[in-house]
Design a protein around this nucleic acid. Structure first.
Length: 150
DNA sequence: GCCAACGTTGGC
DNA sequence: GCCAACGTTGGC
């Protein structure tokens, strides 16, 4: 079992929205590195730190779980979608998604500022300068440590 | 294949 | 709203 951190802008899709929906197809990933994580490394049952980005208080706000293998993201074929990709063919889809299921909200937001402060997390991709990945791997030790802050 | 221009992410 | 960092695009 592996662990991940997945970013979402709360104005787009928040932890409360996931709580309500219970299961969400994680569409709109248009970055090859993030796609490859989904395609090659994610397995059903993997743990997810749900992270709010681009908001007043960026940080980890909840837990979720991978609920499907990677499969084609339908939004890439929809000309009306923001995520439409005219260069992607149905017989050879460029973009994939996984289904993400709600686990629970954290008792409090573990903020980015706090995470940056911890020597135990210095290797976490999230706190590295210029990091823009929306899906990134988290080690078991990092997962345990972050949850111990709750 | 290089690289300048451009667009996006996301913290602040 | 600003802007640093970084990915992508496209001319050559």
């Amino acid at each position: 079992m592996r662990y991940w951190l997945m970013k979402s802008e709360p104005e787009e899709f928040s932890i409360d929205a996931l709580k309500k929906k219970k299961l969400e197809p994680w569409n709109g990933v248009r970055n090859y590195q993030a796609r490859n994580f989904m395609r090659d490394d994610m397995k059903v049952g993997d743990g997810v730190l749900f992270y709010h980005s681009n908001c007043d208080e960026p940080g980890v706000v909840g837990l979720a779980e991978i609920r499907s293998e990677a499969h084609p993201d339908p939004s890439q074929f929809d000309p009306k979608s923001d995520y439409y990709d005219a260069g992607s063919k149905r017989e050879e889809p460029r973009w994939l998604l996984v289904d993400v299921g709600y686990t629970r909200k954290l008792k409090r937001t573990i903020t980015l500022a706090e995470l940056k402060d911890k020597p135990q997390l210095q290797d976490l991709a999230l706190v590295k300068k210029g990091n823009r990945l929306s899906i990134l791997p988290v080690s078991r030790a990092e997962w345990d440590f972050i949850l111990s802050l709750e």
